[in-house]
Amino acid sequence: MMKILQVLTGIMNHRASDLLSDQSVCTLINTCFQVVQQSASRGDLLQRNARYTMHELIQAVFKRLPEIEAKDREGDSESDMEDGDEGGGLESGYGIRCAIDIFHFLCSLLNVVSIVEADGSTTHTADEDVQIFALVLINSAVELSGDEIGKHPKLLRMIQDDLFHHLIYYGTWSSSFVLSMICSTVLNAFHFLRRSEILHVKN
């Protein structure tokens, strides 16, 4: 698995990686996350390397966001997200569509649950380890993208609606450590997106 991680890193760090399609980059991210999941039972060293690689891949994608110039105006419907391909073709390389799909995936990790069996009963609780990992990646994506996120309405709406919905929900009953990470994410979002009119504090 270490060799798989090395290959994934090598692909994204190569100077020709900008020519990868949106689907190819999403496949790389998904493959890396599968290694992260499988590494949980194979030792701390592999798990640390897998998570570090995942972080590195996320950084490679979102640090490119300021360079992306949307060729077409983003629509408001979900079909636009499926049919439109802003900067995501083979000629121009991956772009905003890839970033949107990956950010949506990171938000979905906040809902991962763990199964706990006790006294003959089974309960489902939020997997705080995965939540913390997801929040670290989300924080990194927001920091690297900066106020460029405000130029992409769909990505901005995802932060306002999906991300903040999860943060508010889990912030009311999570552990103090997860709550501190949630607060850090909120502060980062407002710091880097304060110029975006759509992102504001509601009473």
Rank of each mutant, 00 (worst) to 15 (best):
Met1Trp: 10
Met2Ser: 02
Met2Cys: 06
Lys3Pro: 07
Ile4Met: 12
Gln6Asn: 11
Gln6Val: 01
Val7Cys: 12
Leu8Val: 01
Leu8Ser: 05
Leu8Lys: 06
Thr9Phe: 03
Ile11Met: 12
Ile11Gln: 13
Asn13Ser: 11
His14Arg: 09
Asp18Gln: 02
Asp22Arg: 06
Thr27Ser: 11
Leu28Trp: 00
Asn30Ala: 14
Cys32Ala: 03
Phe33Leu: 10
Gln34Gly: 02
Val36His: 01
Ser39Gly: 00
Ser39His: 04
Ala40Arg: 00
Ser41Ile: 12
Ser41Lys: 09
Ser41His: 02
Asp44Asn: 08
Leu45Asp: 01
Leu46Arg: 06
Leu46Lys: 02
Gln47Ile: 12
Arg48Gln: 13
Asn49Met: 14
Ala50Trp: 03
Arg51Val: 15
Arg51Tyr: 02
Met54Arg: 05
Glu56Gly: 00
Gln59Leu: 15
Gln59Met: 15
Ala60Phe: 08
Ala60Ser: 14
Phe62Tyr: 06
Lys63His: 13
Lys63Ile: 10
Lys63Gln: 14
Lys63Tyr: 15
Arg64Asp: 05
Glu67Ser: 13
Glu69Met: 07
Lys71Trp: 04
Asp72Gln: 14
Glu74Ser: 11
Gly75Phe: 08
Gly75Trp: 01
Gly75Leu: 12
Ser79Tyr: 13
Asp80Ser: 09
Met81Ser: 08
Met81Phe: 09
Met81Tyr: 12
Glu82Ser: 04
Gly87Tyr: 00
Gly89Asp: 02
Tyr94Ser: 07
Tyr94Met: 10
Ile96Asn: 01
Arg97Cys: 10
Cys98Trp: 04
Asp101Met: 14
Ile102Glu: 03
Phe103Val: 08
Phe103Ala: 05
Phe105Trp: 05
Phe105Gly: 04
Leu106Gln: 07
Ser108Thr: 04
Leu109Asp: 02
Leu109Ala: 08
Val113Tyr: 11
Ile115Leu: 10
Ile115Pro: 00
Asp119Ile: 06
Gly120Arg: 14
Thr123Asn: 15
Thr125Met: 13
Asp129Glu: 02
Gln131Tyr: 00
Gln131Cys: 11
Val136Trp: 08
Val136Tyr: 05
Asn139Thr: 15
Ser140Glu: 14
Val142Met: 01
Ser145Glu: 05
Ser145Leu: 03
Gly150Val: 03
Gly150Asn: 03
Lys151Ala: 14
Pro153Cys: 09
Pro153Phe: 07
Leu156Phe: 04
Ile159Phe: 00
Ile159Ser: 04
Asp161Gly: 10
Asp161Met: 12
Asp162Trp: 05
Asp162His: 04
Asp162Leu: 06
Leu163Tyr: 05
Leu163Ile: 03
Phe164Ser: 01
His165Ala: 02
His165Phe: 06
His165Ile: 05
His166Arg: 09
Ile168Pro: 12
Ile168Leu: 04
Tyr170Trp: 09
Tyr170Ser: 09
Gly171Lys: 00
Thr172Lys: 15
Ser174Gly: 14
Ser175Phe: 10
Ser176Arg: 11
Ser176Ala: 15
Ser176Asp: 15
Val178Phe: 01
Met181Asn: 08
Met181Ser: 12
Ser184Pro: 03
Ser184Ala: 08
Ser184Asn: 10
Leu187Pro: 07
Leu187Met: 14
Ala189His: 11
Arg194Trp: 01
Arg194Gln: 13
Arg195Pro: 05
Ser196Asn: 09
Ser196Glu: 04
Glu197Gln: 05
Glu197Thr: 02
Ile198Pro: 01
Ile198Asp: 06
Ile198Gln: 11
Leu199Tyr: 04
